[in-house]
Computed example of a mutant assay.
Amino acid sequence: MYEEKASNYCHCRLCQKAIGAPVAVFTWVPTENFKFSKGQPKRYASSDKGDRLFCGDCGTPVGFDTKGPVIGVTVPTLDNPECFAPQQHIFVSSRQPWFKDNDGLPHLKEGPDSDSI
């Protein structure tokens, strides 16, 4: 399960398409403890896993609502993104072959409940 305050690089195809980049960076927080400071985002049901959240004015992706106990917030959109350094790469089975990293962080083939590779 996604842990509170856990941040990660997500390489899944859904994130790649939603963010328009080879990797997205999310931090996961309890849904009940999270509020947007200004307005409410628009929603797009991108999969059976949840809704993509984005700014209705500019289109910036701002999160992923699991419709469960946690919400994923795109780290670069936070006021202090430096406080949420990723701790792992997830869904590397979908990583673009030309995208390389050498940060030494754990790589999970699929999601947080999967085995490291």
Score class of each variant (00 low, 15 high):
Leu78Gly: 05
Gln87Phe: 00
Ala45Val: 12
Pro76Ala: 11
Lys17Pro: 01
Ser37Ile: 02
Glu82Ala: 10
Pro97Ile: 05
Leu108Ile: 11
Lys5Cys: 10
Ala45Ser: 14
Ala18Phe: 05
Asn80Arg: 02
Ile90Arg: 00
Thr66Tyr: 13
Glu110Leu: 04
Thr74Ser: 12
Phe34Cys: 06
Arg13Glu: 14
Glu32Lys: 15
Asp79Tyr: 03
Trp28Ile: 07
Asp57His: 07
Ala24Met: 13
Phe54His: 04
Asp113Cys: 04
Ala21Ile: 12
Thr77Arg: 06
Ile71Lys: 02
Gly20Leu: 12
Asp101Asn: 07
Tyr2Cys: 04
Ala24Glu: 15
Gly72Trp: 02
Leu105Pro: 06
Val29Cys: 02
Ser47Gly: 10
Cys58Pro: 13
Pro69Ala: 15
Asn8Ala: 15
His11Arg: 12
Lys35His: 14
Val25Met: 15
Lys17Thr: 08
His11Leu: 12
Pro112Val: 08
Pro106Trp: 10
Gln88Gly: 00
Ile71Phe: 01
Asn80Leu: 01
Lys109Cys: 09
Leu14Trp: 11
Lys5Gly: 00
Trp28Gln: 15
Gly111Lys: 05
His107Ser: 07
Lys67Gln: 13
Phe91Met: 06
Phe34Gln: 04
Thr60Arg: 04
Gly111Tyr: 03
Ser114Glu: 09
Ser7Gly: 14
Glu82Pro: 01
Thr31Gly: 02
Asp113Gly: 05
Ser114Phe: 05
Phe34Ser: 08
Phe34Met: 08
Gly59Asn: 10
Asp57Tyr: 02
Val73Phe: 07
Pro41Ile: 12
Pro86Ala: 04
Pro86Ile: 02
Gln88Ala: 03
Ala6Lys: 11
Tyr2His: 14
Asp103Leu: 13
Ile90Glu: 00
Glu110Asp: 09
Ala85Ser: 01
Thr27Cys: 10
Thr77Cys: 07
His89Cys: 03
Tyr2Val: 14
Ile90Asp: 00
Leu14Val: 11
Gln40Pro: 00
Leu14Gln: 13
Thr74Leu: 05
Gly72Pro: 10
Leu53Thr: 01
Asn8Pro: 01
Thr74Gln: 09
Ile117Glu: 13
Asn102Cys: 09
Lys109Tyr: 12
Lys42Phe: 07
Cys58Met: 14
Ser93His: 02
Ile117Lys: 04
Ala21Ser: 15
Pro81Trp: 04
His107Glu: 14
Asn80Asp: 07
Leu14Cys: 09
Lys109Val: 10
Trp98Asn: 04
Pro97Thr: 10
Pro41Trp: 12
Trp98Glu: 08
Ser116Tyr: 03
Cys55Asp: 15
Lys49Arg: 11
Cys58Asn: 14
Glu82Leu: 03
Phe84Thr: 00
Gly20Ile: 08
Cys12Ala: 14
Gly39His: 06
Ala18Ile: 01
Arg13Cys: 08
Asn80Lys: 07
Val70Met: 15
Thr27Arg: 08
Gly20Ala: 11
Pro61Gln: 11
Gly111Ala: 09
Gly68Thr: 03
Glu32Trp: 00
His89Met: 02
Asp115Tyr: 06
Ser116Met: 08
Asp79Arg: 05
Leu14Gly: 06
Pro86Cys: 03
Asp79Cys: 03
Lys35Asp: 10
Gly59Phe: 02
Lys109His: 12
Pro81Ser: 06
Cys55Arg: 13
Leu53Arg: 01
Pro112Gln: 06
Lys35Gly: 04
Gln40Ile: 04
Pro112Ala: 13
Thr77Leu: 02
Gly72Met: 07
Val75His: 04
Gln96Tyr: 03
Gln87Trp: 00
Asp48His: 07
